[in-house]
Write a protein that binds this DNA or RNA. Structure first.
Length: 407
RNA sequence: GCGUCGGUGGCGGAGUGGUCAAACGCACUUGGCUGUAAACCAAGCGCCUUCGGGCUACGCAGGUUCGAAUCCUGCCCGGCGCA
């Protein structure tokens, strides 16, 4: 039977694992390498679907946990699925909720930088974003057992339970073209023993997720499913995880738990050598420009990341010459656009001075414009990377980009 | 003119005898943000510093006291009320 997803490699490089291709889905094609916009609650915060299109975004990824809580997967299903619901007529993905096992469990209330290992050791308990009333007595909103995960809703404290089967059921209702197996995303500070235990559990959950999907004839014909590689910061586990999942018949693979540059980016190529070459690979949650180059070079096809929108809302803006903080005093009278080389409508229309003013005066348009520009920047960067892979100039492009970007 | 209340750091505003370089908020400065509990979080914010501390400060000038932003006297300035 023909699968709803297919991947075609158009061009691959000989001196690295980089490749360019096309992921065909029921709602269109994703030309890779590609940056997928994060739309957790069926919205890429601040950006309308039509704007995303104009910014060059090809696909969005929603989240099963968040959409299950609000508005409820039935609502989205009744609306015709996540794409219809958010008026996005292009490819969609949904994440399984596995990351929330971490962020609402071990990660709750702790300041864990996703990328710098030095920070992780401290395990500082700093950032309590929501009131303690909502947290349970064990100080977490999620507890893992072998069957699944029990969550306390971060909205109202009510109790919920996810199992691989439930996550898949929710993702079936959400109806994205690409769904993800339910995994356990561990804390980056987890030791080898726990990481191994969690990985083995994730593998059992992967098998159950896959079965739950393949056994649903209708959904299996309409949606594709990716497995998620785990293993934390341990190379042996990462390789074991890749091999184990490679033997399961997923339509593609996500690489999860990418908490540390040092730990994950260094073994990405080893992971990808284990995974079947003819299937697409998605690097979950990674999106700094430098990291995207590393990912592509290691054989990653798609990326998703909250950074363009979160940074945009927080006043950090990507430019060809690195990141800038638009709220800094130096931009008060700057008549130039954010990035003179940028082709986005924000840069074609507005000055730094204006955007600076919007941020200082807390006008919501500032957040939107910064998010728009950032989203364009990442989508455009991956598009240029794609063209450089096809044209065989990847290395040259990478070097010239990074030379300017790192100033 | 008389009465009355009040004058605190860039602003608003606590404090009313010691633990006050002075709460808190705003503004400002600097960092951070990587499968979104994030339009958020953290630090700094009189001057100097060998980072131990030192110096100058709560309208101005005196005074009481071991000790004053806090009490007393005079002056200057502002609000309100009465003439």
């Amino acid at each position: 039977m023909k699968r709803p997803l297919s991947f075609a490699i158009e061009h691959e490089l000989s001196d690295s694992l980089a490749r360019a291709g096309k992921i065909a889905t029921p709602h269109g094609t994703i030309k890779t390498p590609a940056f997928i916009a994060v739309a957790t609650k069926a919205t890429a915060k601040g950006l309308q679907s039509t704007q995303l299109k104009d910014l060059g975004v090809q696909s969005v990824i929603g989240n099963a946990y968040h959409l299950y809580l609000t508005p409820g997967e039935k609502v989205v299903e009744a609306a015709g699925g996540i794409g219809k619901f958010m008026a996005w007529d292009a490819p969609t993905m949904t994440d399984s909720g596995g990351f929330q096992v971490f962020s609402l469990g071990e990660g709750l209330g702790k300041k864990v930088s996703k990328i710098s290992p030095e920070e992780i050791q401290h395990d500082e308990e700093v950032v309590m974003i929501y009131s303690e009333e909502v947290a349970t007595e064990h100080g977490k909103l999620a507890i893992v057992d072998d069957e699944g995960v029990t969550f306390t809703s971060h909205h109202d404290g009510s109790l919920h339970r996810f199992t691989p089967e439930r996550s898949i059921e929710i993702q079936h209702a959400l109806g994205a073209d690409i769904i993800f197996a339910f995994d356990e995303c561990t804390s980056p500070s987890a030791d080898h023993a726990y990481q191994k235990e969690a990985m083995d559990r994730t593998h059992r959950w992967a098998k159950r997720s896959l079965a739950a999907h393949r056994n649903n004839i209708e959904k299996n014909a309409a949606q594709g499913i990716y497995g998620i590689v785990q293993g934390g910061r341990y190379e042996d586990l990462r390789i074991e995880s890749s091999r184990t999942l490679a033997n399961m018949d997923f339509d593609g693979y996500g690489i999860g738990g990418s908490f540390s540059k040092r730990d994950i980016l260094g073994v990405l190529d080893k992971i990808n050598r284990e995974l079947p070459k003819e299937k697409p690979r998605h690097l979950l949650g990674i999106g700094e420009p430098e990291d995207i180059f590393v990912g592509v070079e290691a054989g990653i096809d798609t990326f998703d990341c909250v950074l363009p929108t979160r940074n945009g809302r927080n006043g950090t803006i990507y430019t060809a010459r690195g990141k800038m903080s638009i709220e800094r005093a130096e931009y008060i009278r700057d008549p130039l656009p954010i990035d003179t080389e940028c082709g986005c409508m924000v840069c074609k229309t507005h000055s730094c001075s204006y955007i600076h003013h919007l941020f200082r005066s807390k006008e919501m348009l500032g957040l939107v414009l910064a998010s728009m520009h950032n989203m364009y920047f990442l989508a455009n960067l991956t598009e240029r990377i794609r063209l450089s892979v096809i044209g065989g100039s990847f290395q040259t492009f990478k070097e010239s980009f990074l030379a300017t970007y790192r100033r």
